[in-house]
């Protein structure tokens, strides 16, 4: 029985439970900024009630933020926290947003986006999610490749390296962090685990990197990073203002 495989909630302190929830939320990113909803300051409250019910509240930088992204983040939070073994129910509440009611109801009832916004869509959010996964992949790849070039790896090594070569490359703490961030995305865009003999660096369409110097390619994909960073700066700044406003 599923119930038997669950940890006994009474065995975990509230503090540990809270930490586990926050940690699960850290894996949820804003798709267009490719940063955790927690580090962006979106999550405003986490509560654990009766030992196994989790309530999360979040707020976005503006009343008008795109509802599709809000819906993606809210469902990812619900799913991420639901995966904790001791959690029986999760409620996610988006506050102060023009579509808050529809989004909160849709996420609670595990609707897909089409059903949550009847007549306003022509499909679910899969294509949108794929597009922004591709951007996040490019962003993380560019940061790792630039790091590797600085650390003395040459273009040829980078183009030919297998996942295994990358994994065993001796990197310092920063390099290791960039490598992990990249490999997580490597798996996500393939929807599979990293296979060790496969090429570590491909385009977002899984093709080999273009021949010649990497600079031109890096310049091209750097647009994804610029965009994400720029949006991150804007979201953080506006959210700070929104939180400090007393009107």
């Amino acid at each position: 029985m599923a119930a038997e495989s669950k940890c006994d909630p009474t065995q975990m302190s509230l503090e540990d439970q809270m930490a586990a929830v926050w940690s699960a939320l850290e894996a949820v990113t804003d798709p267009e900024i490719d940063e955790a909803v927690t580090s962006l300051g979106f999550v405003t409250a986490v509560n654990v009630v009766d030992g196994d019910k989790v309530a999360i509240e979040f707020r976005l930088p503006t009343y008008w933020c795109a509802p599709n992204f809000a819906f993606l983040m809210a469902s990812d939070m619900r799913d991420g926290v639901s995966n904790l073994s001791w959690v029986r129910s999760v409620s996610v509440k988006l506050c102060d947003h023009f579509c808050a009611n529809l989004i909160n109801r849709g996420v609670e009832q595990r609707q897909d986006f089409r059903d949550a916004f009847p007549g306003e869509t022509d499909g679910d959010l899969d294509a949108l999610r794929r597009k922004f996964l591709g951007q996040a992949f490019q962003r993380r790849q560019e940061m790792l490749i630039r790091y590797l070039l600085r650390a003395g790896y040459d273009s040829d090594w980078i183009k030919d390296a297998s996942v295994n070569d990358l994994m065993v490359a001796p990197l310092d703490e920063q390099g290791d962090r960039l490598r992990n961030l990249y490999l997580i995305m490597w798996r996500r865009i393939r929807r599979s685990s990293a296979v060790e003999h496969e090429r570590a660096f491909t385009t977002e369409n899984l093709e080999p990197l273009p021949p010649g110097q990497l600079n031109v390619y890096l310049r091209k994909i750097s647009a994804a990073r610029h965009n994400a960073e720029f949006n991150g700066v804007f979201c953080r700044s506006v959210l700070t203002m929104r939180k400090s406003r007393t009107l």
């Binding site: 916004f117 869509t121 022509d122 499909g123 949108l128």
Partner: peptide, 9 residues
């Protein structure tokens, strides 16, 4: 940020 269809960017 509110252009239809809502599922698109």
């Amino acid at each position: 940020p509110t252009i239809r269809p809502l599922n698109k960017d």
